[in-house]
Amino acid sequence: MLIALLTSLDKLKKGERGTIISLNEGEQALKFMEMGCTPGEEVVVDSIAPLGDPMAIIVSGYKLVLRRSEAALINIEKSL
C-alpha cells in the first residue's frame, strides 16, 4: 500500500501535497536543500505554468518555481 504513495515531485498535480523523503544526490539536490527543500518538509503544488512547465510549489512558507526535470530529483510521499 505504502509503496504506491512514493513518487517524485514532478508527478504531482495542482493542489496535491506530499512530504519530501529524499533528494537524488548531486549539486542540484544541495541547491534545493539550501532553499528549504529538506527531507521532512511538506510541499504543495501551487500551480503549473500554462504551458505545462515549470511548476510552482509552496515549501517552507514560500513559493518556489522549478522545472519539471528538476522536480524529478525530489522524492516524496504523496498525502491523500
Binding site: E27, Q28, K31, F32, P54, Y62, L64, L66, R67, E70
Partner: peptide, 9 residues
C-alpha cells in the same frame, strides 16, 4: 557556471 532554473516567486 551550472545553470539552475529554480527560483523564488
Amino acid at each position: 557556471e551550472k545553470s539552475y532554473f529554480v527560483m523564488e516567486m
